[in-house]
Computed example of a mutant assay.
Amino acid sequence: MLVSIASARSGNAVAGGGLGGLMGSGTPLTEWGSVLGLARFPDGHIGGVADGEWYRLVTAMFLHYGVLHLLLNMWALWVLGRTLEAVLGPLRFLALYLLAGLGGNVAAYVFTEPNRFTAGASTAVFGLFAAIFVIMRRLGRDTSAIVPILVINLIFTFTVPSISVAGHLGGLVAGAVVSLILAYAPRSRRTAFQVAGCALVLVALIGLTLVRTAALLG
């Protein structure tokens, strides 16, 4: 976040965007790393995932628009991540986080206008919301407190104009699929099943990216 603000050389990076100015504006760093389908930049060059900048599908989940954007996502990650990592272990939790974030970014790439920037850890955070519901149900624990929080976040997703609906819903779906694979793997072949399942999710996301790229370049 500090690097992003420094690259902007402007206070707008801190609090110049949506939600009454609290969400922050774009910076050269978010311009470089956010999800972007295909667009022409002011200096005339063309960039975006369809132009070969696939790294955007990963870097976007580590960039934020403003301090409030960052703090909200980090708070959610702290609350959800501690529980999930304790249950899954660090490696499985990392796989869940990365695939959920990637899933949300691929969904943003596929379903968002090609010239719109999207970024934030919320794609992965929504995947964690789905995962904690699935895994807690698998463990037989009460999930009644999770549903209202998820509903509130979905309301924000659909009512705040600057939020990527596709990114949030894509992360939610990807997180649900990965958590089902992790939670319901057969005990006798658990690791092999989980690795194969997560690999299939990754292949599916790559396939969707290739289809969208062909459509944009066609």
Rank of each mutant, 00 (worst) to 15 (best):
G48R: 06
S34N: 11
D51V: 12
H45F: 14
H45S: 12
L38S: 13
D51P: 09
A60I: 05
Y55P: 05
D51Y: 11
I46V: 15
H45P: 03
L57H: 11
G48W: 11
G44L: 00
P42E: 07
G48L: 14
G37L: 07
I46R: 09
D51I: 11
G33F: 00
L29Q: 07
L29R: 02
W54Y: 13
M61D: 15
G48N: 07
L38P: 00
P42K: 03
G52F: 05
Y55V: 12
R56T: 08
Y65F: 14
Y65C: 12
Y65N: 12
T30P: 01
E53G: 07
H45V: 14
L29H: 01
Y55H: 03
E53I: 03
L36I: 06
D51W: 08
A50R: 06
G44F: 00
P42H: 05
E31H: 12
A50Y: 02
L38E: 02
W32G: 07
A39D: 05
R56S: 04
G47P: 04
L29I: 14
V58N: 09
D51A: 15
R56E: 00
H45Y: 14
H64P: 04
H64G: 03
S34H: 02
M61T: 14
P42N: 02
I46Q: 13
L57E: 11
Y55I: 12
G47R: 08
E31M: 09
G47C: 07
G66A: 03
E31I: 02
A60N: 06
G44N: 13
T30S: 02
Y65V: 15
L38M: 13
A60F: 00
T30C: 01
Y65D: 06
R40S: 04
L36K: 03
H64V: 09
V35E: 07
S34L: 04
I46M: 14
A50K: 04
W54M: 07
V49S: 00
F62S: 01
W54C: 09
D43R: 11
F62M: 11
F62V: 13
G37A: 07
G33W: 00
G52P: 06
L63E: 10
M61Y: 04
L57M: 10
V35F: 01
F62D: 03
H64C: 03
H64Y: 06
F62G: 02
G48P: 10
V49N: 01
V58A: 14
G33E: 04
V58R: 15
G66Q: 05
G44Y: 03
L36A: 09
W54G: 15
L57K: 13
F41A: 15
V58I: 14
G66R: 02
G37H: 04
L63P: 08
H45T: 13
G47W: 09
Y55E: 02
Y65Q: 13
V49R: 07
V58S: 08
P42M: 06
L63N: 09
G33V: 14
G48Q: 10
G33Y: 06
G44A: 06
W54R: 04
W54Q: 06
G66D: 07
D43F: 04
G48K: 00
F62E: 01
G44H: 10
G44Q: 14
R40M: 05
L57T: 08
D43G: 01
M61N: 15
E31L: 01
G47D: 04
T30G: 04
L38T: 08
M61C: 09
A60C: 06
S34F: 05
E53S: 10
E53F: 00
W54I: 12
W54T: 14
